[in-house]
Design a protein around this nucleic acid. Structure first.
Length: 826
RNA sequence: GCCGGAGUGGCGGAAUUGGUAGACGCACGGGACUUAAAAUCCCGAGGGCCGCGAGGCCCGUGCCGGUUCGACUCCGGCCUCCGGCACCA
């Protein structure tokens, strides 16, 4: 009886072999048919990899091997997104310095990847915490600073009390920190930003040129950028020099504006508050500011407002309308000020009702003029303009908006304007374990850039991590104390470090010249190797990382370092692996914190890495979520043992010298070609789960051929080799082993992916479904490509079908060659 | 509310351009091997009904309708679930 194969010995052997032969090394300077594939580089966390992470890398490795066998020169590098908070928190908890902690994690994770049989070109390994990497973050920062793309400003920012640092907007999810889950507070701080908003339009337009990205991700990015067309309109304010500028998407409702509302953070709000006797205004501003972002943006938040007593001049009518403060006006969007049109905007309507402000409809609907007193809600759509001077009579819609914008622009009262939800990227972090921002604060010269020659600005080692003070970097006097590059006088270094998303926004370029200390990007190699042909990673990066990377790639293009705007040609987001959580009884995302992880190490020890790989790929379509099941692993293991068993029997076949009559078309040949076709097509769309199904049928076919003895030994050996090739991307160790034992000369990886004969992939005889009046009445076995007349004649004589057509007139026959014959009779 | 995606057996899931719905696997039932068990191999199976049997009939891909000889697939209208955005002016 077949025994289970010795996976431990086989896998150790081949992993050593791949390492010793540097199996995945690729010379990027050589010409050839390039294919750049990339898995999102991992954060080397302290906990072990689980099979949920493994899915990403196993899929990538299967594709890598498939592409290699397709004859391409495939670049498949790996690196480490090595900066970040956990290392610093570990330092606080255990005293291990972040670098040591991170390097240890990298070493362990690398071993885990290796033990799954994953091949990477390790000669290109990089870690973002390495000065040779992060100096280019600093260099890029300086270039962006020169161009005004990096700047410092005081602004209300998101502060995570748990992480004790500020966060980018993208890192705030439902008012909470995406990493720690703490409720985010708003603080007014001076911070460094990247001007991503300048690229909003290009980032949005670029999405249309990404046919191989999912609609899902593109929609998420579009929503995040949040483009809306409208106009900015100026309202002069009595007693103030500066007008209030409002942003609106409905300039056509201008004549319905009965008040202005300012965000409490608006500059004019502050000015009014500073005037004598405005204590009420100051108090309101203070009260709103104290609310957390979570409270202020919650759906149930009550609209609060305060009349400032100040009047603005309506640019259309010259009327005075009151200026209010309102908590629902957000400082970051538009201009932080709105015109209130209660008749046609629901929020303004509610606000006006609460504070008894006038409601003035400017659209007459099909039901006639609207009586403001009788309104129960705003009327956002439909009708014809009224009470709007020369605009009267225009129907609601694009025309009305264009008319309004032209009118406003002609009177110099404002201009058409496109608004975005996207805000500038806050890159400052008040933490140690990140790239130091290369800036120096000088009492005389202000904020001065670190000269290029002084890069990298290194992270200091003399830092204590107690977790009590603020940024540990600020405690390092050796780091902070410096001299001004401009005047030479004493100065202090910037102690903010960069968001780690800066690191990951260009690493895909660095893999092309990882050891090059003379430049950030090798433009020539980038021209040859970019874009990344296939990028693979989790959906959780749909906005953050992928938006930042697209942004920085455009910046690099504008700096003439790369030739392209979109770094990732094809994007694949694999679904999460879920598992029943015994603690909660629910099926949940696999994660350490939930305590429902399965470690590939443990499984590998029991079943082998090939089984882990096979099951991970077999579990379901990779783009969808899949539930892990132990029983499923057993099935995968059984299959590989069957492959091993059949290979053993093939190896024991007698040699039959030269096959006498050349290749014969047999059922096994046909199965073989059909399998090649199926697996090839499945691999192209990453559907290894159906490829495995096809391979299972193929394995069974070979086993049957061995039993029945109808095929020549040569034919069986040939099919066996094909099986090993097709299975190689999925189960590389076992297939390499048998390839060698069956006399294969080179590594399987060096062999060409099997070709199939389209004619052989389809059987010469087909089963035709015969319907009479749409009902299936029988099936006919006939030659492929048979003519309709032949099929009809055969059907009329077939015992099962004849009774249904005998004595009846065939009105028409619907014939789909090789598939179906439908006789319509009367 | 706006936008995107998805609904198929007990379960994960298959099904080129509309053409045998349920491949493959898990779980399940039966059998072989075994003193026995495990392991392995083989067979069975969407639901319902009729038939001793070979076999036959009806229903069936979220719901309702349409197009078609024929619809999981195309069209119209809904329902449910998942994801993104949302006091965004």
């Amino acid at each position: 009886m077949p025994e289970k194969y010795d996976h431990a010995a086989i896998e150790a052997k081949w992993q050593r072999h791949w390492e010793e032969t540097r199996a995945a090394f690729v010379d990027t300077s050589a010409p050839g048919d390039k294919y750049y594939m990339l898995n999102m580089f991992p954060y080397p966390s302290g906990s072990r990899l689980h099979v949920g992470h493994g899915r990403n890398y196993i899929l990538g490795d299967a594709l890598y091997r498939y592409q290699r066998m397709g004859g391409r020169r495939v670049l498949n590098p790996m690196g480490w997104d090595a900066f970040g908070l956990p290392a610093e928190n570990a330092a606080i908890a255990s005293g291990t310095p972040p670098r040591e902690y991170t390097l240890a994690n990298i070493a362990r994770m690398k071993e885990q990847l290796r033990s799954l049989g994953l091949l990477y070109d390790w000669s290109r390994e990089l870690a973002s915490c390495d000065p040779s990497y992060y100096r280019w973050n600093q260099w890029l920062f300086l270039r962006m600073w020169e161009r005004g793309l990096a700047y410092r400003k005081q602004a209300p920012v998101n502060w995570c009390p748990g992480c004790r640092t500020v966060l980018a907007n993208e890192q705030v999810v439902d008012g909470r920190c995406e990493r720690s889950g703490d409720a985010v507070e708003i603080r007014d701080l001076t911070q460094w930003f990247f001007r991503i908003t300048d690229y909003a339009e290009r980032l949005l337009a670029g999405l249309d040129a990404l046919p191989y990205w999912s609609e899902r991700v593109k929609t998420m990015q579009r929503n995040w950028i949040g483009r809306s067309e409208g106009a900015e309109i100026r309202f002069s304010v009595d007693g103030f020099a500066e007008p209030v500028v409002v942003f609106t998407t409905r300039p056509d409702t201008l004549f319905g504006a009965t008040f202005l509302a300012l965000a409490p953070e608006h500059p004019l709000s502050g000015e009014i508050a500073r005037r004598a006797g405005a204590t009420e205004v100051a108090g309101f501003i203070e009260r709103v500011r104290r609310e957390s972002r979570l409270e202020r943006e919650s759906e149930t938040a009550e609209k609060e407002g305060l009349d400032t007593g100040v009047a603005a001049v309506h640019p259309g009518t010259g009327e005075r309308i009151p200026v209010w403060l309102a908590n629902f006006v957000l400082p970051e969007y538009g201009t932080g000020a709105i015109m209130g049109v209660p008749a046609h905007d629901q929020r303004d309507f509610e606000f006006a009702r609460k504070y008894r402000l006038p409601i003035r409809p400017v659209y007459r609907t099909a039901d006639g003029d609207v009586d403001p007193a009788a309104m129960t809600q705003a009327i956002p759509h439909g009708g014809v303009l009224v009470s709007s001077g020369e605009w009267n009579g225009t129907a609601e819609g694009v025309q009305a908006i264009r008319l309004a914008v032209a009118w406003i622009e002609a009177r110099r009262a404002g201009q058409g304007k496109v608004g975005y939800r996207l805000r500038d990227w806050l890159i400052s972090r008040q933490r140690y374990w990140g790239t130091p921002i290369p800036a120096i604060h000088c009492g005389g010269c202000g904020v001065v850039p670190v000269p290029d020659r002084d890069l990298p600005v290194l992270l200091p080692q003399d830092v204590a991590f107690r977790g009590t003070e603020g940024n540990p970097l600020a405690q390092s006097e050796s780091f902070v104390a410096t001299s001004c590059p401009s005047c030479g006088g004493p100065a202090r270094r910037e102690t903010d470090t960069m968001d780690t998303f800066v690191d990951s926004s260009w690493y895909y370029l660095r893999f092309l010249n990882p050891q090059d200390d003379s430049r950030m990007v090798d433009s020539q190699r980038a021209r040859a190797w970019m874009p990344v042909d296939q990028y693979i990673g989790g959906i959780e990066h749909a906005i953050l990382h992928l938006l930042y990377a697209r942004f920085i790639c455009r910046v690099l293009k504008d700096l003439d370092l790369v030739h392209l705007e979109e770094p990732f040609e094809r994007l694949f987001n694999q679904g999460m692996i879920t598992r029943l959580n015994p603690a909660t009884g629910k099926i949940e995302k696999m994660s350490k914190s939930r305590g429902n992880t399965v470690s590939p190490d443990d499984l590998s020890a029991r079943f082998g890495a090939d089984t882990v790989r096979l099951y991970t790929l077999f579990i379901g379509p990779p783009e969808k979520e899949s539930e892990w099941s132990e029983d499923g692993v057993l099935g995968a293991s059984r299959f590989l043992n069957r492959v091993n068993d059949v290979a053993e029997r093939v190896a024991g076949l007698p040699g039959d010298g030269k096959a006498g009559s050349g290749p014969r078309v047999t059922p096994l040949t046909r199965l073989e070609h059909r399998t090649i076709q199926r697996v090839t097509e499945d691999a192209q769309r990453f559907h290894f789960h159906t490829a495995v199904a096809a391979l299972m049928e193929f394995q069974r076919g070979i086993a049957e051929a061995l039993e029945e003895g109808t095929e020549t030994a040569a034919a069986i050996r040939g099919s066996m080799r094909t099986l090993l090739q097709l299975l190689h991307p999925i189960a590389p160790h076992l297939t390499e082993e048998w390839w060698e034992r069956l006399g294969g000369e080179r590594s399987l990886l060096e062999t060409a992916w099997p070709a199939f004969d389209r004619d052989l992939a389809t059987s010469p005889r087909v089963t035709l479904v015969v319907q009479v009046n749409g009902r299936v009445r029988g099936r006919l076995d006939l030659e492929r490509g048979a003519a309709e007349a032949e099929a009809v004649a055969l059907a009329q004589t077939d015992d099962r079908i004849r009774p249904w057509v005998e004595g009846k007139q065939i009105k028409r026959a619907v014939y789909v060659p090789d598939r179906l014959l439908n006789l319509v009779v009367q």
